[in-house]
Amino acid sequence: MIQDFTWIAIRDIIAAVFLASGLFFMFVGGFGVFRMPDAYHRLHAASKCTTLGITGMLLAACFHIADPIVISKAIITVVFTFVANPIGSHLIAKAGHHGGLKVWNETLKDELSLDKKDPTMSASDDITGCLDDNPDATHCRLTYPEDAREVA
């Protein structure tokens, strides 16, 4: 009985566990994007769940197909996902917050908007000068030719 658990069988058991957990996270991420009440909540569900889901499924592929090509590509993809997914989520959230995206009405605290109203904080619009009606705030904008034409 115990000698039936060869290395191939143990590898497949580990692959099944990782595959099931990765699929669980992927499904929960997709459902959370639909279900959550607010764009920030949806971003939370999407970024965490897709990162963990991709990682689990790539580890399952590594254990199931024990090949150097699969393992090297999976390591590259996992490192890239762990770097790129939080950066993308952070950029989307920051752009939405600067664009005036509303929070859920049961959100307890929005510290970035409090800091923007505080003139002593570095995120304040008074210090950075990034107000919408400030025509001299060229450093806040992307320097494209049509922007320069607008300011001039």
Binding site: G22, L23, M26, G29, G30, V33, A39, R42, L43, A46, T50, G53, I54, M57, L58, A60, A61, N85, G88, I92, A95, G96, G99, L101
Partner: peptide, 21 residues
């Protein structure tokens, strides 16, 4: 909003990756 749609597009890209795996 547009933010919700872009979040959904990003999540769909990750799920296509999951289907390929």
């Amino acid at each position: 909003t547009l933010v919700d749609r872009s979040i959904a597009a990003d999540t769909i890209a990750m799920q296509v990756v999951a289907l390929v795996i």
